[in-house]
C-alpha cells in the first residue's frame, strides 16, 4: 500500500475510532444530533439532575399541556408550533422564531432546542472529550437568548426591553433560572407562573384605609407585564366589604380578537386602586390571587397576599 493510501486508511481508522468513542454502548449517534429522541434518552443519561428539573417545568410540557392544547386547538394554530416544539434556536439566530420541529413534539422545548449546535452543544464552558461536545457559547448568557420563543407571540421581550431590569442588566435567567446553591449551574426547574412561591416575588403591595376609601398599592417587581405572557394567567384582586358587597379587579392579557383592554401591570408599574367604602362598613378584607390556569377555582389560586382592616 502506498504512503497516501496508508494515510487515508489511518485517517479513516482514526475517524472510526473517534466515532466509536462518541457513540454510547449501543452504537448511537452523538447526543447533539439526537433532538429526534426524547430528552430523557438524548441527554438524561448523563444529566439526570438537570433532566429532572426540566421535566417539572413548563418547557417540558410546552407541547402536551392541556391549557396549550386547548388554546391552540391542538396546534391547529400553526403560528404556535415552532415555539412549542422548536429546533435549535441558536441555529436560526436570536432575532427570530426558531424553526418548527415536526417530530418528537411531545418533548416540547427539548434540551437541544436551547443547547443544540450543529457540531456540539452550547454550554457555559468548553469541555474536551465529553460525549456531547460542549463548548462555550456566550449567547446562552444573553437576555436575548429567550427572544426567539418568548417574543413573537407573547411579546415578553418587548416588555422587558423597557424595564428597569433591562436597564440594570438583570437578565431573564437571573430570575427564571436561578443559580443552584451548590454552584453547579442554573436551575432548569419551574420558576415561573406555575410556582406559587416564585409568583409571590412578582408583586409588592400594601393596603390602607384613607379617609373613606380603601387604597391598594400594587407594584410590579418583574421585568415584564404582570401577569406575564399569556391570557390564561390572571391576577384577581378581591375586596370584601362584608354584607355591603364586594368588588373585584381582574388583570389579564386579552385573547386575540378579544375586545378587551390589556390592563395588566406594566413592568415596574405602581398602580393605585381606590375603592369607596360603603356606609357603615368597618371591616374590609382584601385578597390578592394569581390564577396560573384558566378555570381554576379560587381555592386553588395562588394567594399572593391577604389583608384585613380589622
Amino acid at each position: 500500500m502506498g504512503g497516501a493510501a496508508r494515510l487515508i486508511a489511518a485517517s479513516l481508522a482514526a475517524i472510526a475510532v473517534a466515532c466509536l468513542a462518541l457513540r454510547g454502548d449501543r452504537g448511537e449517534r452523538p447526543p447533539h444530533e439526537r433532538i429526534d429522541v426524547p430528552s430523557v434518552a438524548a441527554c438524561g443519561r448523563c444529566h439526570a439532575d438537570v433532566y429532572r428539573e426540566w421535566s417539572q417545568s413548563l418547557h417540558a410540557r410546552a407541547w402536551t399541556n392541556e391549557n396549550v392544547l386547548r388554546a391552540t386547538r391542538n396546534f391547529e394554530r400553526e403560528s404556535c408550533r415552532a415555539c412549542h416544539s422548536p429546533l435549535p434556536a441558536l441555529a436560526t439566530g436570536l432575532d427570530r422564531a426558531p424553526d418548527y420541529r415536526e417530530f418528537n413534539q411531545e418533548d416540547g422545548v427539548h434540551c437541544l432546542s436551547c443547547h443544540g449546535l450543529p457540531d456540539g452543544v452550547a454550554a457555559t464552558r468548553t469541555i474536551e472529550g465529553a460525549p456531547c461536545r460542549p463548548r462555550a457559547e456566550p449567547r446562552l448568557g444573553l437576555a436575548e437568548f429567550c427572544f426567539p420563543c418568548h417574543e413573537p407571540t407573547h411579546q415578553a421581550f418587548s416588555e422587558y426591553a423597557v424595564s428597569n431590569a433591562r436597564r440594570d442588566g438583570v437578565r431573564c435567567m437571573d430570575c427564571h433560572m436561578p443559580e443552584r446553591e451548590d454552584g453547579s449551574g442554573r436551575s432548569h426547574g419551574p420558576h415561573g407562573g406555575m410556582n406559587p412561591e416564585f409568583v409571590k416575588l412578582a408583586l409588592d403591595w400594601d393596603c390602607r384605609i384613607e379617609n373613606d376609601e380603601l387604597v391598594v398599592r400594587l407594584e410590579n417587581e418583574t421585568g415584564h407585564k404582570f401577569p406575564g405572557e399569556i391570557p390564561s394567567r390572571s391576577f384577581l384582586l378581591k375586596v370584601d366589604f362584608g354584607e355591603a358587597g364586594s368588588e373585584t379587579v381582574l388583570l389579564r392579557k386579552p385573547h386575540k380578537q378579544e375586545d378587551r383592554e390589556d390592563d395588566r401591570l406594566l413592568p415596574d408599574e405602581v398602580r393605585i386602586l381606590r375603592f369607596a367604602l360603603p356606609e357603615n362598613v368597618e371591616d374590609v378584607r382584601v385578597r390578592l390571587l394569581f390564577l396560573p390556569l384558566p378555570l381554576l377555582p379560587e381555592e386553588h389560586a395562588f394567594v399572593l397576599g391577604e389583608w384585613s382592616s380589622g
Binding site: E247, D268, E269, R271, I272, L273, R274, F275
Partner: peptide
C-alpha cells in the same frame, strides 16, 4: 415608574 389611578373595570 408609572402610576395610575384605576377604578374597577368591567370585564368583557
Amino acid at each position: 415608574m408609572l402610576a395610575a389611578v384605576l377604578l374597577a373595570v368591567p370585564v368583557r
